[in-house]
Amino acid sequence: MLEIEGISAAYGEFRVLHEISLGVRSGETAIAVGPNGAGKTTLLKVISGLLRPSLGKIYFDGQRIDDQETHEIVKLGISLVPEGGRLFPYLTVLDNLKIGAFSKKAREEFRKALDEIFGLFPILKDRKKQLAGSLSGGERQMLAIARSLMSRPKLVMLDEPSSGLAPKIMARVFEFVRRIKSQGYSILMVEQNARKALELADHAYLLESGRLQFHGGAEDFVKNPYIKKAYLGI
């Protein structure tokens, strides 16, 4: 579904990604783990068109997307839940969901998508008139995930969904991700919290200093002695 071939990217002179290749198959959950500054966020920015790669190609459903604009890529079916949620704080919960369904096709299916979202996350229905900025940390992340589903994506990308949250709320956020996984969405999630993330993974990638160090099925991944020691603490 998503094929990334030899992507490099830089902020000005500062190279962040070095010839990364990875893929996400339909219905699969892929996780990219790695320390701070490994280029995980940059990778998602490049896929969603917020940052142009300096080298390499990206295909989505066979179509090349690395030269397309962000709003076009969203229309094709890739959505991103940015780190920290990045909600529109002065819009209501409902308006945040509405703007998530901005593209023409998503707008037509707005009612249906909204019913699904409220089924998946019932609290949002009670809070729909509230400003997004007044939600709690966990609810914000929930709304950010819900908002990204409103565009009717095939692939949902999540950038560090657990970052900055208390452990108890973190567990809830992973539970949200599990819920959308069970709905059949393909997922690409980057996380620092490798142990929790790997519980959800079908396939995992390890990024270090902008380079892909290791990849494999979730089971091979957790068996790798280096990953065990450095990222899982066992």
Binding site: L50, E69, H71, V74, L91, D95, I99, A106, R147, S151
Partner: peptide, 24 residues
């Protein structure tokens, strides 16, 4: 209106609004 909503959202976060499928 939807356009009005896009305008308000753009005012709040110029980058993220693109991820909503809005041509900023």
């Amino acid at each position: 209106t939807y356009i009005g909503l896009a305008i308000r959202a753009t005012a709040q976060d110029t980058e993220i609004v693109k991820l909503m499928g809005v041509n900023s």
